[in-house]
Design a binder for these strands. Structure first.
Lengths: 178, 178
DNA sequence: AAACACATGTAACACGTTACATGATTCA
DNA sequence: TGAATCATGTAACGTGTTACATGTGTTT
C-alpha cells in the first residue's frame, strides 16, 4: 500500500506521468528508495479507478514518444492522502538487510571470509557516505522533512561505519584468543 | 530466499521442528526479525525435497500434541548454507520504514500532527531501547556476531532517538519562523 | 468446561521484482 | 544505421502476511 500513497504524495509537487514519477524518486530519493514500472502503472490505473487521481492525455504535437498520461490529484485523493499521512504507522523491524541476515550466522562460517565481507560492507558504506555528503548541498533548498531525511541517511551511514569497524576489530581479535 | 537459508542457519544450533524454529527466532531475534508458519512449513517441505534437510518423525509416547517432525541438516544442506554464507549480499535500501515513508511527505500535512507522530516514535524507540538494554545481559554468552547484532540494535535505537529529537526541535522552530 | 500451549498445515491475498513487448524521436 | 531516451504497459514469478482448519494434552 505504501506505493499508492507515495504516488499521491509525489503528485503534490506537480502533475506527473508514470515515467516522471520513477525519475523523480530516483533523483530525489535514489539513495533510500526504489520503484519500478511494474508497481507504478498498475497503481496509477487503480488510483484512477478509485477516483483519487484523474488523468488527462497530453497530445504531443511534434514531440517524441507516445502520448503522456498526466495524472493529477482529485479532492478525494488529497483527502485520502491526508488521512493516511495523519495515521499512526505500524512499527517495523530492522534487520531486513541481506548482509545482517548472513552476519548472524557468521559464527558457523569461515572467519577469514567474514572479515572480507565486513570489509566489503565498509567500502560500500564509505562510498555511499561520500555520495550522500556531496549531494547534501544540492538538496539544501527543500523542506525540513526532506532535509532531515537526507541527514538521517548520513547519520545512519556513519553509525553503520563505526559499528562495522568496531565489529571488525572484535572479530579479528577473537580469532587470536582461540 | 532469506527464510530458506535462515532455517539452514538455525539448524546449525540443533535439530528443530517448525514450531521451535519460530519460537527460537522470537526469543533470540524478536526485536529485529519475525516469521510466520505460512513461511516456515512450506519452506521446510521444499528444503526436504531439495535434500538440504532430512526429517525424522518423533513418536510422542504419552506426550502432548501431534508428532513432531524433527529436521536436521544434511551434508548437502551444510554445503549450500556455506556457499550462501560466503557469498556477497546485494546491497539494500534503507527507508522501508512505514514512519519514514510518511515523514518525507509531512511538509504537505499538518505540522501539529507531524510533531505528535514524531513524539509517538520517540516514545516507541525509548521503550525499545529500554527493552534491548535489559535483555543485553541475557544474551552476553552468545558468539561475537550475535552479540554485535544486539549492539547494533542498541546503536541504531540511540541514533534514531537523537535524530528524532533533533528533528522535533527543527520542525517546532520552523513553525515560528513562518 | 474453558482456555491455553503444543504442533502442523493450507488457501487466499497482497506486494514487489524481472523480464519482456511496443513504438516514436533524437543523436552520434 | 544503431543506440539512447522517452513513454506505456503486462505476465510470470517470488515472497510475505493473514486467517483459517485441525487436534492433543495440560492447566485453571
Amino acid at each position: 500500500m505504501s506505493v499508492k500513497y507515495s504516488i499521491l504524495g509525489l503528485l503534490h509537487y506537480e502533475d506527473m506521468h508514470g515515467y516522471r514519477i520513477k525519475e523523480h524518486i530516483e533523483k530525489n530519493f535514489g539513495y533510500m528508495w526504489s520503484v519500478n514500472y511494474g508497481q507504478i502503472y498498475p497503481n496509477l490505473k487503480k488510483l484512477e479507478q478509485e477516483g483519487l487521481i484523474s488523468m488527462r492525455e497530453e497530445v504531443q504535437n511534434g514531440k517524441k514518444g507516445p502520448p503522456k498520461k498526466l495524472y493529477s490529484l482529485t479532492d478525494a485523493g488529497r483527502e485520502a492522502f491526508q488521512e493516511w499521512l495523519a495515521g499512526s504507522p505500524e512499527r517495523s523491524m530492522l534487520l531486513r538487510d541481506p548482509f545482517l541476515m548472513r552476519f548472524v550466522f557468521f559464527g558457523f562460517g569461515d572467519k577469514g571470509r567474514a572479515l572480507e565481507l565486513i570489509d566489503e560492507q565498509i567500502m560500500a558504506y564509505e562510498g555511499d557516505l561520500a555520495g550522500r555528503l556531496s549531494k547534501k548541498e544540492k538538496w539544501r533548498t527543500k523542506d525540513v522533512f526532506v532535509n532531515q531525511l537526507a541527514e538521517l541517511g548520513i547519520e545512519m551511514n556513519k553509525m553503520m561505519l563505526s559499528w562495522l569497524k568496531e565489529t571488525r576489530k572484535k572479530v579479528a581479535a577473537g580469532g587470536e584468543e582461540q
